[in-house]
Design a binder for these strands. Structure first.
Lengths: 346, 346
DNA sequence: GTGAAAGCGCTAACAC
DNA sequence: GTGTTAGCGCTTTCAC
């Protein structure tokens, strides 16, 4: 047990300096090796690498990024963690990040207004190399700031931003169109729709898709059949109650997301009705719970994990190659399960 | 020769230095104010605070912690994000962290051996002020290192660590005992059990609780009725198949977690049997999906969010007050829903 | 009370 | 190719 030189710093921290001494080269040469710099003699590289290994050297990220390097940390800003939706996206992000040697910093805003922009400021301030934003509302305020600083970022699920932002999204309108058309093909003539939060482009697109499908089928659009929701389960419940109280209630409901579909389930049961016997339901998102509820929910699948992955890929390109903004739209697809059936009478 | 002395640095960063100039005091006084140092004249404090506000100053965490201060970042090490269980805990952690002005760094290990210890090393190396570990297996290897460095950390759901670690856990044995007793009270005499990963103390405790309940009821323990699982849905499926194939299959099954209960559901249906008509099921955890499946799962509720919160509180005490290790065990409780019914014959 | 100065560990010019 | 030297933004003694 020979302790060459002296014991590395107090709390067991081995610095680049220790490695330098151990391998007999300088400070910066170690840095070069560690950063994969090209012009280093192979034998030197080996010496350094071995010394680092022997000493159990681990880079200090803060020092590194303070000094102008990369922190290899990506910030992910999300409104909350309460819905399967976001969890799935994070999974995708997380995996892609690991694969590329980056770490994930999670920022939840809980929809608090000021918080989002404060975060973005702080985040962009140095710790993270880039940002992935899954925001609740149109974030023009800080998007602007990010843009001006030329700070790398990618948005997920918000396609109505005017600027040249990178965006990953799904085919919301098309998905809604197909969901509605499916219901029409089953013979339904009165199809209700519970919208999402209309401040989100996804909610708007889905409503548009719903209307388009009606029109394509030559069916009149009845404003009474559309009630405003906010993407939360509760609003699916109340929205469905409203729809059910109509003089001529719908025989099918398309909700703007799965969570609201679950709310609809409750409301329908509370009214002593059966799914899909009395009312058919189609959701949107295909979160994991969709196949666990009974009856299993027919819904529009969004490739959430894949969207997270795509966001990472674009972001890393921005960071590492300073590539221009890109918009990626991934395909949704209707997943038919057990919550729909042909309209009862004709 | 470069041009020095300029307005707030290039990328719009406002530093403590800018604030100093703006408020006409020195460098270090600003730091004192920002850190809530006591001996600062009130008027000075005001001046500085106003200047900081006016300039939109945001602290640079890296610089701060590099210089010896706190980063206000807590690392959370988890095996994965695939099961409702961990997501719930993270929610609790996240909320408690926000409330206390800390940020959350998420590290997923995906069960890769080396990865866990590498992470712990890197994490403890400076970026984070403390660590919360929700690990898959007994992590003696790096727990030791953490301990030696006197690095603050808390374990969740792993109570068989010998050292003086802080631990947050739930009453696993008691929960399992009650679950089993409930089944016994319903008249079941052949009760199967699918264990969790036996490398986890929670799995062991639950098995112990199961046995204890049988014994308390004067029922013989039949090894055939216990099959090994690993906490994943698939093992619940195969485990149930095994149980069902017995000459005398059980009339009720207690699975060591909810995910495996869902697997049991599938297996039972695949055998053309009905829940709870033919077989009763009790799970453990009470993840959100438990009340969404059909029939709604009777299960032992673990206060997951609360456990996350508790972990944060203990950790922050360690960090801020250097408090001694603590063990907290939160109470589980049986949540009776629709997956059980009295044994058929008597 | 407040300013000056010495680093924290590292990257990135700039020399040699 | 490799060493030298500034800082990155901040906390912290130590003077005054």
């Amino acid at each position: 047990m020979s302790d060459k030189g002296q014991a590395p710093k107090s709390r067991g921290k081995v610095t680049i300096f220790d490695v330098a001494r151990e391998s007999g080269v300088s400070y910066s040469t170690v840095s070069r090796v560690l950063n994969g710099f090209k012009y280093v003699k192979e034998s030197t590289r080996q010496k350094v690498l071995e010394a680092a290994e022997r000493l159990g050297y681990v880079a200090n990220l803060q020092a590194r990024s303070l000094a102008g390097g990369r922190s290899h940390i990506i910030g992910v800003l999300v409104p909350n963690l309460d819905n399967g939706y976001i969890g799935e996206i994070i999974r995708g992000i997380d995996e892609a990040l690991r694969d590329n040697g980056y770490d994930l910093m999670l920022y939840t805003t809980h929809h608090q207004e000021g918080k989002e922009s404060r975060y973005v400021q702080a985040i962009a301030n140095g710790l993270t190399d880039g940002l992935i934003l899954i925001v609740s509302l149109i974030p023009t305020a800080y998007l602007d700031a990010l843009h001006k600083q030329r700070f790398p970022y990618v948005l997920i699920g918000q396609n109505d931003v005017e600027e040249a932002s990178s965006i990953v999204d799904a085919t919301n309108e098309k998905g809604a169109y197909e969901a509605t058309r499916y219901l029409i093909e089953l013979g339904h003539r009165r199809i209700g729709h519970i919208t999402g939060l209309m401040g989100k482009s996804s909610a708007v697109s889905r409503l548009t898709g719903y209307k388009a499908a009606l029109e394509a089928a030559g069916m009149a659009f009845d404003p009474q059949l559309v009630v405003k929701g906010n993407f939360w389960e509760q609003s699916g419940y109340t929205g469905t109650q409203t729809l059910l109280a109509l003089p001529q209630p719908p025989t099918a409901i398309f909700t703007s997301n799965d969570l609201m579909a679950f709310g609809a389930y409750e409301a329908i049961r509370a009214n002593g009705l059966d799914i899909p016997q009395d009312i058919s339901i189609v959701g949107f998102d295909d979160i994991p719970q969709a196949s666990l509820v009974h009856p299993k929910l027919t819904t529009v699948h969004q490739p959430l994990e894949q969207m997270g992955r795509a966001a990472v890929h674009i972001l890393l390109e921005h960071i590492e190659k300073d590539s221009p903004p890109r918009r990626v739209t991934l395909a949704t697809r209707l997943v038919i399960r057990d919550s729909c059936q042909p309209a009862a009478s004709t």
